[in-house]
Structure formats: C-alpha cells, structure tokens
Design a protein around this nucleic acid. Structure first.
Lengths: 195, 195, 195, 195
DNA sequence: TATGAATGAGAGTTCATTCAT
DNA sequence: AATGAATGAACTCTCATTCAT
C-alpha cells in the first residue's frame, strides 16, 4: 500500500468519524483503529488532529464547489433557473457538509481560528458565482435590476446563508421544505424589478 | 455570603466561561477557580457540569422571553410595528444568547439531549406570541390575511430562525444589518395581502 | 425528638446501609439523607464514619451474644443438645451479622484496626460459653473427655468459625446446609469419647 | 525495556499493592508511581483498574492450581497421603492468595461480578482433582466408600473451604495449625468406611 | 514509511470532614 | 442539639502527542 493510499485511507476514515461525532468527540485513537493504521502514522502524515480536520474540511469544500460549478456552467438553464437551482442545490449540498458546518458553529477558537481562511475563501468564491449568474442575466436582458449587482448578490447570499439555520442546523428540512418553493418565489419577486 | 449569593456567583462565572469557551472547553476547575469556590461547592449546588449548564441556558432563555414580552405587551406599537420590532429585537437578543445557541449547534447529543425540552418550550412560546400579534392585527382590521394565522406565524418563525445563521452564528451582524430593514419590508409585503 | 432518638435513628439507618452496601460504599451523605438528619448531626453524635460503624458493629455483637446466651442458659437442653443448638444458632445468627463480618473480611486495616478489640472480646466470650457447656456436660456425666476442656472448646470454636466460610461468606447456605446435620454428628462423634 | 517487561512490572506492583491495601484502597496513581510508569501506561496495557485486578487474581489462581497439581500428580503419595497433603497445601497456598480472597469476601458486586467466572472455574477444577484422587484410591482398593465419589468430594471441598476462614481470613494459622493434623484424621475417619 | 509503547496534563466527580450559625 | 453550606484532597479515566525502532 503506497503512501497516497495510506493518506487517503486516514482522511476517509477521519471524514466519516468527524462527520458522525464531531471534532471533539472523535479521538485520534479511534481514527487509527478504524483505519487500521498505527496512531503514529497519523502523525507522520499530518502534524496533528487539527491539520487532519483541516484536510477533511478542505475536501468537503472542494466537493461543494464542484457541484455548484456544474450548475453555474450548465447552459441548459437560463439565469433565473440557474439562480433558483443554485439555491436549491446549495441547500442540498450543505445538508451533508457536516464538517464544514462544525467550523461555522463551534466556539472552539483555539482549533478553528485557521478555518476563517477556508470560510472566507468559500464566501468569496460564491460571491463570484452569484455575480456571474446575475451579470449573465443582465447581459441577456433577462434581469433588469434596481440594485447594483454586488448588493443584490450580497442579499441573496445573506438569505441562502440564513436558510442554513433551519434547514441544516436544526434538522428542520422536512418541516420547512414545503415552504421553500413559495419562499423562493417571494424572495425573487421582492428582489427583482422584472416580475 | 449566603447560599443564594454563592449559587449566583457560580452561575454567573459559569455563564461567562461557557459563553467564551463553549461547554466542552470550559472546565469545572476553571469555573471554581474564577468563582473563588471549591470545586466541591459546584457539586454541592449542581449535580454536575451538565446541570450547571442547563441553569445557565435556562436563565438566558428566560431573559430572552422577558425582553420579547415587553414588545408583545407594549401598546405603543400597532400590530405591524410589533411584528417588525419583535423580529429586530429577536435578532438583537439572540446575538448574546451564546449558550442557548451552543445547544442548537452542538452535535453532543450525550450532553444536550435534555435541551430539546427547553428548545421546544421556547419554540412553542414564540409561536404563541407571534400568533397573538397577528390575531390582534386581524381583529383591529390592520391585517387582512390570505393564509391562516397559524401558517403565517410558522413562516415568520422560519424566517427569523433562518436569519439567526448569518446574524448570530457568523457574526455578520454589522455587515448585514443594513439590509435588514429592506428585507423585513419585503417579507411582510410578500406575506400579507394588505399591501 | 430527644437526643437519644436522634442517635438511634442515625445508628439504625447506618446499620441498614452498612449491611446492604458495606462500609466503603456507604456514604455519610446517604446516611444523613435517609435518616433525615443534617450531615453535621452525624458528626455531632459520632466523631466520624468509623465510630459510627463501630457503634453499629457493637450493637450487632451484643445482639449475637444475647441470642446465644439464651441457649447456654436454657435448662431444657442437655449439654449435647446445647452444643448442637449453639452451633446451629450461631450459623443462623452470623448469617445476618453482616457488619461484623465486614470487619473480619476487610483488608482495610486503617479503618478496622480498632475492630480487633471487639473480635477478641467476642472470641473470649464464646470460649467461656463453650467451656461452660462442656464443663456442665462433664459434671453431669454426660460427657467424658480424652482432651482438656480448653482444647476441646478451642477445636469446636475452630470448626464453627470454619463453617462461617461456606455458610455465610460464600452464600452457600442452601447448598451446604443439607450436609450440616451429618457433619455435626461426625464432628461430635470424632471429638468425644462417649459415643 | 520491552512491552512484556512493562506489563509484568505493572502487574507485579499492582499485585503487591492490592495484596496490601485491597482493591478499593489501592489507587491507580500509586501503582503508577511505584511502578515508575505514567498513569496513562496502565490504561494502555489494561482497560481499567478492574481489568488490572482481574489479571492479578488470575495469576494468583494459576499459581494455586499449579502448586496443587504437583501433589495430585505426585506418585510418591498414596491416595490418603495425597488427600491430606492436598488439604494442607491448600491451606498454605490460600494463606497467600490475598487478592483471590478479596473477591470472595467483598460485597463490591459492581467490580467483582466478573469474578464469579474465575471462582466457578476454580471450584470446578478442584472438584475434578479431588474426585480424581478419590477414584484413584478406590481403584487401588485403598478407599472403600459408603458415599458416592461426588458427594464425598463435595463434603471434602466444603470442609476445606470452611477452614479457609479461621486459617486465612482471621490469621489464625499459627494458632490453629497445631490442631490441623488431628482434625484431618478425624475428618477422614468420619468420612470413610475403611478405618 | 510506519509502528505502537509510553507519556502526562487535565478532565469530571465523590465524599469525609469542618465550622459558622 | 442541630444544621447545611463549603471545602479540598483523592479518585478513575481520557487522549493528543512523542519517539525509539
């Protein structure tokens, strides 16, 4: 088993356990045991628990990005469709991005200070995507704004981020999702002149 | 120093530390040290770390309730004003309800299973308040709904809960709050027939 | 409630709990709680846990003595009957002298060093009783020994003490008691010339 | 220092301390300190205090078995000699099996529930040995029983178990051992027809 | 490249005892 | 004569990390 396989094995087990039990309640011991590696091996490949977690989260974020990118680049949708699908997919993807969420939620500044960078990076990336969708809509004449592209995109981001709460954190997906479609319409209506 | 003072001292120190470091990273040792009490004293007054945390959270929730109740019972507002002020105050209050939030966020089901009750209780309480505001508005003819009072109140609750995310969790209060006023209007417009 | 009543209440609760959970696993807290007395009261009446236990054991030993004395002084039995009944009653009484036994068993020399006196006292007392029975038997011509009264009584004491093991300590009462009668006969036959 | 040495060092220190202070009054801290190992090392090698104790007791029991087996297999003795020597050696060995005894005596069912197995195993083992000795005696014509081999062996076991009390528990070895020879004869005489 | 034995600081909790009232 | 709040030492156990091999 090559070095890369070992690394991946460790990361994949760590991902599963962090996802299930969270950062604090997952021990290096358990990761090692389940990965069938020696505890020392984890420290050969990663400088500590924190760096291992960082790797796991970065993988998750990369996965999220690539799924969202598929929508942004999918020419089957018009801009309105892209926006709505983006929002819906984002909900879906975040449902499963457990570890990323732990970094948002946790007060554990000692360990997660470093996560600010990853979060900031993702925020910026999303802003770029949303802006790009809106700009496309404006260019094709599909959208006609009475707000700047940047402000509108910020508001949209605020709202979708807001929905992470009841949808993901509080596990109210099934409870609230019936309202989602209506809500989406209301929001888009309120935010754009064109309707 | 009477028993009540001691209890309060412990709770107040615990509140500060839980708020700052979270449940896991706050040790009974530190609470005792800073409160200038023996560790055993904490266990005289509370059966364990969990119960102490429970007390802290319950205090927080009671504080939230009483602040919100002031608005619901304030006859200076008309119903629309009450609703908007309720939403804004809620944001404000939740900003500081750090410990309550930890229980929403945490995956630590071992420790926080007991919090379901407190959360459920608060949810129900809020639903009652919102319904009461809306009903008042309907009775005075200020509101005219095309949804049932219950459904409307559920949607409002969903939205304000949703906003907890960016406002509280991610510390974006200052960043997003300029948009809040506009958002509130949009939402109320979208939800009520009368506009 | 007078002072004597309080003392007795404490002792009686302590007795019950020591009996059930042993010395170590019974806490002063629990004794106080169940006796409905303040913890401080226990320390008003007894200098510590140890002295309270001492009192409990002493009571138990006194109870044992008085039950055995009834047999020794009962003129309905002849000497052989007394001896056999003494042995049987001793088994029975010891079955329930849980706290006394704890002092025999425990390695806890710190706490139970003081128990040597109580044990020595009881041993001496029993030796006197057995000697008295045997002497009575000799005087009435019922017994005719080829050993001195003292040696014979020591052997009897050794045997009855020995039987505490399987009968009491190991909870084999029901298992071994069928053999008891036969064993008693064998022993008495082996020990005395008269058969 | 290899792993086996460390394990043995821990076990040997634990054995000494358990023997001296008993299970409850021996702390993991002290074992670690005296063994010159980190506390965590004890938990690396044993899952807890209980398992460490279990190991100690198992070693003791194994030692007892092998010493007794020497007698059972020693063809220098005839069957009567074996039986008597077995009984005497048993007394001797049990004198030093302090930890095994703690499990017999202790009321601490939480910790020692697991000991039932070890005890049961030893009981069964002894029954087999005694039966084997008796059968051998019967086959060589040395013994002629009016009881079944099984019942006779049960009675012998009861008696030797009984003698554990005064001999071991109460430290009366030196006091009572002068009587032992006579007692042994009496018992064997009482139990077998052939005398 | 990988191992796993060893570490030690720190965690939550228990409890006999003290003492001001 | 009685209280009960307060203490602090001692306990078992956890776990991220180190290091010789």
């Amino acid at each position: 088993m090559g070095i890369e396989e070992t690394r991946e094995k460790i990361v994949s087990v760590a991902d599963r356990l962090f996802r299930r039990f969270g950062f604090q309640k997952t021990s290096m011991d358990e990761i090692a045991r389940i990965a069938r590696k020696a505890k020392g091996s984890l420290y050969y490949h990663f400088s500590g628990k924190e760096e291992l977690f960082r790797e796991v989260v970065q993988n998750e974020v990369n996965g999220m990005k690539s799924k969202l990118l598929v929508i942004v680049n999918n020419s089957d949708y018009n801009s309105g469709g892209k926006l709505k699908t983006y929002m819906q997919t984002r909900m879906d993807v975040l449902q499963h991005a457990t570890n990323y969420h732990e970094t948002i939620q946790s007060d554990d500044h000692d360990h997660f200070e470093f996560m600010k960078d990853i979060r900031k990076d993702l925020d910026d990336w999303e802003r770029v995507q949303i802006c790009s969708i809106i700009r496309e809509g404006v260019e094709t004449g599909e959208f006609e704004l009475d707000l700047s592209v940047e402000v509108l995109s910020d508001i949209i981001i605020m709202i979708v981020k807001g929905l992470e709460g009841p949808f993901y954190l509080q596990g109210r997906y099934t409870e609230y999702s019936p309202y989602f479609d209506g809500l989406a319409k209301i929001l888009m209506k309120g935010l754009s002149k064109m309707y």
